[in-house]
Design a protein around this nucleic acid. Sequence first.
DNA 1: AATGAATGAGTGTTCATTCAT
DNA 2: AATGAATGAACACTCATTCAT
Lengths: 203, 203, 203, 203
Amino acid sequence: MKTKQQVVSEFRRSEIISAARTIFARGGFNAGIMDEIAREAGVAKGTLYLYFKNKTEIYKAVLDHDMRELKESTIERLDAATGLKNKIRAFMLARLERARVNREFFRIMDSDSRSLSYTRSQYRDWLREPVLQLAAALEMAAAKGEIRRLDPEKTAWMIVDMTRGTIQRSLLASTDAQPARDAEFLLDFIWAALQPPPPSRKR
Amino acid sequence: MKTKQQVVSEFRRSEIISAARTIFARGGFNAGIMDEIAREAGVAKGTLYLYFKNKTEIYKAVLDHDMRELKESTIERLDAATGLKNKIRAFMLARLERARVNREFFRIMDSDSRSLSYTRSQYRDWLREPVLQLAAALEMAAAKGEIRRLDPEKTAWMIVDMTRGTIQRSLLASTDAQPARDAEFLLDFIWAALQPPPPSRKR
Amino acid sequence: MKTKQQVVSEFRRSEIISAARTIFARGGFNAGIMDEIAREAGVAKGTLYLYFKNKTEIYKAVLDHDMRELKESTIERLDAATGLKNKIRAFMLARLERARVNREFFRIMDSDSRSLSYTRSQYRDWLREPVLQLAAALEMAAAKGEIRRLDPEKTAWMIVDMTRGTIQRSLLASTDAQPARDAEFLLDFIWAALQPPPPSRKR
Amino acid sequence: MKTKQQVVSEFRRSEIISAARTIFARGGFNAGIMDEIAREAGVAKGTLYLYFKNKTEIYKAVLDHDMRELKESTIERLDAATGLKNKIRAFMLARLERARVNREFFRIMDSDSRSLSYTRSQYRDWLREPVLQLAAALEMAAAKGEIRRLDPEKTAWMIVDMTRGTIQRSLLASTDAQPARDAEFLLDFIWAALQPPPPSRKR
DNA sequence: AATGAATGAGTGTTCATTCAT
DNA sequence: AATGAATGAACACTCATTCAT
């Protein structure tokens, strides 16, 4: 069972991560930020260094936290869905909906990175697992003849690309995102692309 | 007619832009860079300020230059192509090929940005014009019944998204990009998605 | 009679002093040290402040403790010795031997100091009493004609200087110090310097 | 021939060294010092970093400069002097007089050091050369029978120890140092210690 | 026009000290 | 009495920008 100390400590950690997400989303990785994170988290600057070794570690902690969350919720929904079409929808919805809940995180992903040699490529790694699952589902459906034969991994990445683009556009827009509607539009497009050619069309 | 002065001056400007592109691609917008740009451009640091007001202006100049180039070459090829399928191919190839020639620029686009409140959204603006032309082509084709009815702008953006994703992945990969092959893969996918439902499919 | 409380309290104090000596000898007065002292003493950082007002006080306590010890043992041996030669030897041996037992303290003395405006001059004060006793012995011997007339205090300080130099060199050396041998070398030198001129030498 | 640039640059460097000496003598190596050195040198903080890589380098530059000066003047005077007695006097006077001219430097030497793992032992290295020359002179005199046989290096270090002690005491004293008088006192003491035993003393 | 030495505001990080438990 | 989490002042160093030459 957790001691009170542990509870407090975990609370602090997550407060700091939360504050850092806000601040990083505001201005990228650079720029006098430790002060702001501390203020936002309601602690003194020195306290940050009790919980994290340095600025980079805080940054990583934010990404790790949010990316893990995204990855896990994606996989969960992917597993729960049955049938390829539902799986594709689940995959896209997982991301579109998280983007609405946690705009700040997607804003961070959308902007900075090279600052740390971390990120953009790391981002791909976090993505990889759900993408590979999606690819597997595509492959299986192709084997069953439900969809036409296409490189399943490339296809999965295209689904990612379209979802990401949609999210980015929604972050720039002032109007509220509409995950369900966006998902259906994408799904319609993708599903059509995947259809096997009508057998009799040849002739 | 240009004076010799002007020629020299323009040459300097473009030397600086070229140097800055290299340096920015290396390390993002931040981090002790003015010195490096100056060295790379073969001028003294103070000289940079004769040609540009400050670091941000240099950064913008790089993006403006390369984005204009990208935009213009895209539009040119788009205009030259006849038929929707060729136009889509032209649009994608314009980007895929530039990404091979000017990796540094796409690397910049792929990484940093929030550092200046410029970029990602600015990027969209630069994109908009060719995208709208592509959308117009889609709309026209839909009117003629060559493809099914889909929101043309959204569809055009999806083409952009997939192209961009493909480019990003090729930047991360160690192997050489293959614009033509990539374009065909995308085109196959997109073209299938755009097909009107076979009239007889109903029954 | 001491209460159990007092005994515990004194024990803690001396544990802390002992830990502090080790740490100060390691790195001088500055640099993240309170944590280390606490760990070395096996108490929490806050506890240090129950026993000492601040870092400087701990530092002083170390010096006070060790200097008092040095002073007292010096005076003791000085008193116990009879005859000037033996007194000089006793004086030097007291220091040379302590330097072997308590290298850490001499290392502290040998290095830092200005850090606190304390020390080097304070050091002189602690030294003064035994030095004055040595000077008194020198004066008395001079009065008896056992040695020639020389400013006794200055002479005593020179004995101190040579002893100190010898100790410092032994701290830097990797080989073990040899107090007895060193003392005899110094004594031979000093004793020769103190000899009255042979009465008949004049002529 | 030196360009104006070089002259200015060398002037700056030595201004900074001079300022640093003053500041270091005031407070040891630690404590917010870069600001003070800059102010004392009449330049901006950033300028310090144009001339020196970091604080440690400035510190070393001060010591290198002053120690080289001390070493060179000592060797010079040692060479110029003829006869052992004059050489010993020259050696001591070189130091005693520099200590009067450059109190700050000797104050630095007298205090801090462990802060950088540099110094105290480095100090010995700088000293070594003149000390070895002095030792050589002692050895030669012993060979000629002018003085008695004593370990020449140890003897030379004792001369150093006494000189150093004398300087330290003069730094603490409020009255002006009197190099000539101090040197004669030391010389009298040392010279007596070095005398060969009168041949007839045996009996 | 061109230079590059000089500037100094701004930042991440450390560490002696405090204080609620 | 004892703890150790929290504090925040202090500090070395960087780097975009200026300006005398």
